[in-house]
Design a protein around this nucleic acid. Structure first.
Lengths: 202, 202
DNA sequence: ACACCAAAAGCACGGTCGTGCTTTTACCTC
DNA sequence: GAGGTAAAAGCACGACCGTGCTTTTGGTGT
């Protein structure tokens, strides 16, 4: 629990920041060390390989996503509020990842998933699992809304999660790549459409 | 119009294929030359810099997308059929990009946009433009359906394009990252939902 | 068939990559 | 404050990076 663990955390944090701008595979031990005023070998001594550093960076990203998006949502009351909070949490996630110069950042997990979707290995597996967990989480939360009678009884929650996720990706795309200021209102409208359709007929 | 242009095309093609697996930034002149049985310098002589090669690769990807997705859709009758054909074209695009070992490939433009969304430069600009054109195309096609009275008169076509695009991204995600065999049926259902909601009330 | 010119190769360069060593520094415990 | 241990640095390595040259090859037009 000494200094080692502390600098190790510093390294992972900085590597994550750097990966957000240039991609995880482009984060090089040399420039990472420079940026942290460390020697390359001093930095490397904390990890048994570059791949392990990458894995820790992915794990850190997942942990941040969980604490920023998922945990807060699970504190909301079961049912629709929770669905709503998943949405709000994701917006917060994209926003908080945006640097001061605006619109840098974005969903690092999305970026990772595109970077590694055709690169087999532990990194790919970790990302795939995180994304699957996210989809499952959406579906599970939707199920609580169904059980509460706030969403239609026959709702296909997997389908719901599919469309919910798509809407968030569209938001991310509009916000991040196109710098479209209407990204958020459009996302809210899309969510309204989705919820409206999934409402119980009475 | 001689042999030079031909090998140049061969290089760009192969670079695109490679970029699909490992990312454009990871396509290195050395391994590209090896794969084509060329010398590194012989290959390099065709381009004044690596960035120019990257730009040509992006241009090639855009050209393929246009001829696979957009042009065929524009041959369909104006209105709903065209919207439907944009959807079918995108599915074909993802499918055709899938290698023999199944599920490699995917939407290379999407991958590029995530790779370069925080890397300013000509490559970023080219990709951003291509994506904007795609969104505009969706909106324009939707407009033809509105004019034909096949979609609701008051429909916000930008919003429609936003949600249409999100649905395709969800499909891509499910198909590519999760290897979910239900990706296509889920996408069709999502499209049905979107169209249903956009139908004129009568 | 020959000359010409484009295409490819050969070679070299400074730099950086990831990863092993050994050596020095700095922190924590008595 | 001294001693031991953990952390960081120093150094070296083979390999590969992108990019310039010069030289050789080979296709084409006459």
């Amino acid at each position: 629990m000494g200094k080692g663990e502390q600098t190790r955390q510093l390294i992972v944090d900085r590597a994550l920041t750097m990966a957000q701008r240039i991609g995880l595979e482009q984060v090089t031990l040399g420039v990472l060390a420079d940026e942290l005023d460390l020697s390359k070998s001093g930095l490397f001594a904390h990890f048994k390989s570059k791949e392990q550093l990458q894995l820790e960076v992915v794990a850190e990203a997942v942990a941040r996503f969980t604490s920023t998006v998922i945990l807060p949502a699970l504190k909301a009351p079961r049912g629709l509020p929770r669905v709503q909070q998943l949405f709000e949490g994701y917006l917060r996630w994209i926003d908080s990842a945006s640097g001061s110069s605006a619109h840098t950042g974005g969903c690092i997990l999305m970026a990772f998933s595109y970077e590694y979707d055709d690169r087999p290995g532990p990194v790919h597996d970790a990302i795939q699992k995180a994304m699957q967990d996210w989809l499952d989480c959406i579906a599970r939360v939707a199920k609580t809304a169904v059980d509460a009678g706030e969403l239609a009884a026959g709702l296909d929650v997997k389908q719901f999660a599919f469309e919910f996720d798509g809407l968030l990706m569209a938001f991310h795309h509009a916000f991040k790549l196109h710098r479209n200021p209407r990204a958020e209102p459009m996302a809210r409208k899309a969510l309204a459409h989705l919820l409206e359709r999934s409402t119980p007929t009475r």
